[in-house]
Simulated assay, not measured.
Amino acid sequence: MRPRPRRSFVVLALLCALAALGGPPTLSQGAEGPEASARVARLFEEASAATQHYEAGRRAARVQKGEARRMERLLVRERSEITVLHNDLGRIARAQYRTGGDLPLTAQMLLADEPEELMRGQHAVWQADLALNNAVSKSRRAEKKLAEGQREAAAQWHALQERNVQLAQLKKSITRKLEQAQWELQGDADRSVAAGRCRGAVRLEQRDLRPTRAWVPPVKTYTLSAGFDSAGERWAHRHTGQDFAVGIGTPVRAAGDGRVTRVSCGGAFGIEVVVRHRGGYYTQYAHLAAVTVDQGQKVRAGQWVGQSGTTGNSTGPHLHFEVRLTPYLGSGVDPVTWFAERGVRL
């Protein structure tokens, strides 16, 4: 009999991950900050948490389904072996019948030429019969355990599938709310730019500010779009920075420690923040929907300086990021190369 297969540790780990994933951290805003900014930031974190739950559930369901299939294969094999054992018993019974198995043993001994040889053969038959009966009993017990394990694995898979459907619905609901809040935030930003009046810094509580490196990309998750020195119809000469394709309201981070030297909301860059770093370098964060710092404020690597948007000369939501030798346009260097020199690969 085979021992009952152990539960996959991967399944247990994923189930624990599902239970351990908590809700998103809370965010707060100052009285001067618009509600849309805080709502977008909160929904971004809720969407991230919902996605983590959903993806963990999908992984757990995939592993659990594989476990159910594995148990089913073992069950089929065990049943096949039981069939073989039954056939063996049938062959023994037929052999006994052909060699006088229908006569009592005492009669067979009286008729046999060599009774001692008959006894030894009969003893061997008894032992074989007993061994096969024991093997059949053990295999049946193994089959029962495997069947129970297969049912349990299948039930857990179905439960995970139902949970994933609920998580998918939650994720969809959060995404819908996030899209609405994003465009409310962008609308507020557009009105500020049109009026030529920069709003004050939005005060958002950043719970995950744990800088472990001196330099970090300006956004956590992104797709690189227009690169440095590339051509485009919307630029008078060449592109002066690196674009990061991100959604409206995405938290924008300071690339490194420094001080905010400019916060403005007019012109081609729309709402922008410029930070001066050690070594004389400046970084610019443009086309924002909101800022979270004040001019003159010190910032740390990874600290939020704003929320991405599509203000100014912009065709869609993204972050325009520049590295400059001076605070002014025209002194830019390639951000990809600049980051690579500091151990950050974009």
Results as ranks from 00 to 15, higher is better:
residue 104 P to C: 08
residue 232 G to F: 03
residue 54 Y to P: 03
residue 114 E to V: 13
residue 52 Q to F: 09
residue 40 V to S: 05
residue 98 R to E: 15
residue 328 Y to A: 10
residue 130 L to E: 08
residue 256 G to V: 12
residue 239 H to D: 02
residue 54 Y to T: 09
residue 213 R to I: 02
residue 330 G to F: 10
residue 273 V to Q: 01
residue 304 W to Q: 09
residue 314 S to G: 03
residue 324 R to D: 00
residue 163 R to Y: 03
residue 123 H to Q: 12
residue 224 L to P: 01
residue 158 H to R: 15
residue 132 L to K: 10
residue 6 R to M: 11
residue 328 Y to N: 07
residue 139 S to I: 04
residue 275 V to K: 02
residue 291 V to T: 09
residue 61 A to S: 06
residue 104 P to S: 08
residue 164 N to I: 07
residue 75 L to F: 05
residue 191 R to H: 09
residue 186 Q to D: 13
residue 289 A to D: 04
residue 85 L to D: 12
residue 89 L to K: 14
residue 155 A to S: 09
residue 227 G to F: 06
residue 23 G to L: 06
residue 4 R to M: 06
residue 303 Q to T: 05
residue 91 R to N: 10
residue 261 T to M: 01
residue 253 R to E: 11
residue 307 Q to P: 04
residue 45 E to Y: 05
residue 173 S to V: 04
residue 306 G to S: 11
residue 295 Q to I: 12
residue 208 D to W: 04
residue 258 G to Y: 00
residue 34 P to A: 02
residue 337 T to V: 07
residue 35 E to V: 15
residue 340 A to H: 07
residue 25 P to T: 15
residue 140 R to F: 02
residue 27 L to V: 14
residue 113 D to S: 12
residue 105 L to H: 10
residue 142 A to E: 14
residue 226 A to N: 12
residue 321 F to N: 08
residue 82 I to F: 00
residue 79 R to P: 02
residue 33 G to I: 05
residue 18 L to P: 01
residue 20 A to T: 05
residue 1 M to F: 09
residue 278 R to D: 11
residue 66 G to L: 04
residue 331 S to H: 13
residue 291 V to Y: 00
residue 153 A to R: 07
residue 180 Q to D: 09
residue 142 A to Q: 12
residue 17 A to V: 06
residue 121 G to F: 04
residue 157 W to I: 03
residue 30 G to D: 06
residue 226 A to C: 02
residue 149 G to N: 07
residue 257 D to V: 10
residue 296 G to Y: 05
residue 217 P to Q: 09
residue 199 R to L: 13
residue 173 S to E: 14
residue 275 V to Y: 00
residue 214 A to E: 00
residue 202 V to K: 06
residue 92 I to S: 10
residue 249 G to E: 01
residue 142 A to H: 11
residue 267 G to T: 12
residue 87 N to V: 07
residue 325 L to T: 09
residue 303 Q to E: 05
residue 162 E to Y: 10
residue 98 R to Q: 14
residue 278 R to Y: 02
residue 207 R to H: 13
residue 325 L to A: 12
residue 172 K to L: 07
residue 216 V to D: 10
residue 271 I to L: 05
residue 212 T to D: 00
residue 16 C to Y: 09
residue 300 R to H: 08
residue 99 T to Q: 11
residue 18 L to W: 06
residue 255 A to Y: 02
residue 341 E to I: 08
residue 97 Y to G: 10
residue 251 P to N: 00
